[in-house]
Design a protein around this nucleic acid. Structure first.
Length: 574
DNA sequence: TCTATATCACCC
DNA sequence: AAACGGGTGATATAGA
């Protein structure tokens, strides 16, 4: 008896829809097909819009199956239909099944069919049909029929795919992932409120700002050609002044920040051109996808990374580029936003999965880094962030670097210390948290021996031919962390909290101004509960930053750049 | 003119 | 061979 035998019906569902950048999906048609009876429902746009709920059962006794279900659920939301209670997403399960393996044809439905040796329609046919749908209404009757036929091929494909995947799917935990795809749809619908006025001013003045900045500085150097920095001209300029410049192993000039900074110590004349390059590189006002209602919406690309994190496009998503761009996030009148993030999420996961009591104690203290320094004997018991800031910073680098497998050499380099000090600091970590190190070693061993790692909720990583031990050892932290935020997003959006977006270990939520405190408290509870589920009883703390209209979102790291940009556009940086 | 590659900067 | 995990994407240039 299979798990799926528990369901009265299993419905494969696919929508075709149009979705301009930054907008919600607009359903064109839908085909649904039932697994046992093969009953098939084909509905065109006006028929969909006349329905108040899905034309098939979506309660706990029915299983809703789709390929990339956030798209289908997005259509449900657009139509005002109640969201299905039990969702199985074959895209997510295919991704989980192959995670860590190379799938040359990608992760589309056709690729998944091919992977399991199932026949599929031609890629060219799929492209042609997609183009036809994107062309938009009006559609002739034969076009309507062919679009519905095409949509039906996808639900038939889902049916076939489900049949071969059923035995390899861990259904209870697959349903938790499917549940998150509904949360994704809700978050993608909500989007992030943007100060459209400022955005437009920046966009309109962009080329001019760049041109003016370059013209002003490059006068003295002559290394720019229009908006491009010419490496050969820079080389020539340096040679003419006998300024030695570091070269990469490839023979190319090293042009990173660090190189500029180090040469500037002896040749301050390179400073202005460095600042110019640095500013220009940050001046990437990317094409954020903002809808007519002034909200930044884009695909969150759930489960995209090997660790199952969301990986939205950096150009489309306001949290992608430099942090100064986040100043564009602004609650609309009468509302407030809150950014809530887990405190030291990955450190906490390491502490509780490894069972290292000392590490747990350091986390619980509220200041992991300083506690670590004290435990290691590098700071007195009375030390505070104020009295021992420098020590704390060093131990912070060690504590975080260790989670990524940082070497003594790398540690020394990033702290600007001699290698023996790097070794010393690493040894202090090993001596203070021996249980963590044993656990981490065991993770690596297990990964290599079994060829697989898994999170508590069943996200897989297959070890490839050329395993990176640092990557494997970091997997439990990052992947279980991803699971935690997914659970929190599922629970919170189901309870009615508006989550604008997740940001790996954080969420941005929105509420009417007089309800924001309550919403924050509630979100924090969901985050704590989610962490407790993943960590087997331990709750993580979280920090919040509340932004009430008419304030805008701010970020310490971006203040200077924000002021520069506002200044160049003749705007006050408020 | 288009594509591939190396390098770099940014995010959590 | 590299030596800090997971990513996206812009830029400059070389080669087809």
């Amino acid at each position: 008896m299979k798990c799926t035998d528990h369901y009265k019906s299993i419905w494969f569902v696919d929508f075709e829809f149009i979705q301009p950048d930054g907008e919600c999906p607009n359903p064109i048609c839908m085909v649904a097909r039932e697994f046992l009876t093969k009953k098939t429902i084909r509905l065109w746009s006006h028929e969909l819009h006349s329905l108040k709920k899905a034309p098939f059962p979506t309660d706990e006794s029915s299983l809703f199956v789709a390929y990339f279900a956030s798209a289908e659920i997005g259509c449900f939301l657009a139509l005002g239909w109640p969201v299905p209670k039990r969702i199985l997403d074959l895209y997510v399960e295919f991704k989980n099944h192959t995670c860590g393996k190379f799938v040359p044809t990608g992760f589309g439905l056709l690729s998944a069919l091919g992977y399991f040796g199932l026949p599929a329609i031609d890629v060219a046919e799929k492209v042609a049909m997609r183009d036809l749908i994107l062309r938009g209404a009006p559609f002739s009757y034969p076009e309507v029929v062919s679009i519905l036929d095409y949509c039906e091929t996808d639900v038939i494909a889902c049916d076939k795919l489900f049949s071969v995947m059923e035995d390899i799917i861990d259904l209870p935990r697959a349903l938790i992932r499917g549940r998150y795809m509904a949360a994704v749809a809700r978050m993608e619908k909500a989007g992030i409120p943007i100060d459209v006025e400022y955005l437009q001013i920046f966009q309109q003045n962009w080329k001019d700002i760049q041109g003016n900045l370059i013209a002003r500085i490059d006068k003295e150097y002559g290394v720019y050609d229009g908006l491009t920095f010419k490496i050969d001209r820079w080389k020539e300029w340096l040679e003419n002044r006998n300024i030695p410049w570091p070269v990469l192993p490839s023979g190319q000039l090293a042009l990173d920040e660090e190189t500029f900074r180090s040469v500037a110590k002896t040749h301050p004349i390179v400073k202005p051109i460095h600042e110019l390059r640095s500013t220009i590189s940050k001046l990437r006002l990317n094409s954020l996808t903002v809808g007519m209602d002034g909200r930044n919406r884009c695909m969150l690309s759930p489960f995209q990374s090997k660790t199952s994190r969301n990986q939205p496009s950096n150009t489309k998503f306001v949290f992608g580029p430099s942090s100064w761009l986040r100043f564009l996030i602004k609650p609309s009148e009468g509302t407030a936003l809150a950014y809530i993030d887990y405190s030291q999420q990955e450190l906490a996961i390491a502490a509780f999965f490894s069972g290292d009591i000392k590490m747990q104690e350091a986390y619980q203290s509220g200041d992991f880094y300083l506690s670590f320094a004290k435990m290691a004997g590098a700071a007195p018991a009375c030390a505070t962030k104020g009295t021992h800031g420098a020590i704390r910073d060093q131990f912070k680098t060690v504590a975080l670097g260790v989670l990524y497998g940082l070497s003594a050499e790398g540690l020394a380099r990033s702290l600007g210390l001699p290698i023996f000090r790097g070794k010393e600091l690493l040894r202090l970590h090993q001596a203070t948290f021996p249980t963590f190190w044993k656990w981490s070693q065991a993770i690596g061993d297990h990964a290599i021996l079994s060829g697989k790692l898994q999170t508590v909720l069943g996200w897989n990583l297959h070890v490839d031919r050329n395993p990176n031990l640092r990557s494997l050892c970091n997997f439990p932290m990052q992947a279980n962390g991803a699971e935690m935020i997914r659970l929190a997003c599922s629970m919170a959006t189901e309870s009615g909290i508006t989550i604008c977006c997740p940001v790996h270990d954080a969420v941005l939520i929105e509420a009417p101004i007089h309800q924001i405190d309550e919403a924050v408290a509630s979100m924090k509870t969901f985050m704590a509960d989610a962490s407790s589920l993943v960590l087997g009883g331990f709750s993580l703390k979280s920090d919040e930053k509340i932004i009430r209209f008419p304030d805008r979102y701010t970020d310490q790291r971006g203040v200077q750049m924000w002021e520069t940009v506002c200044d160049l556009c003749g705007r006050t940086a408020c």
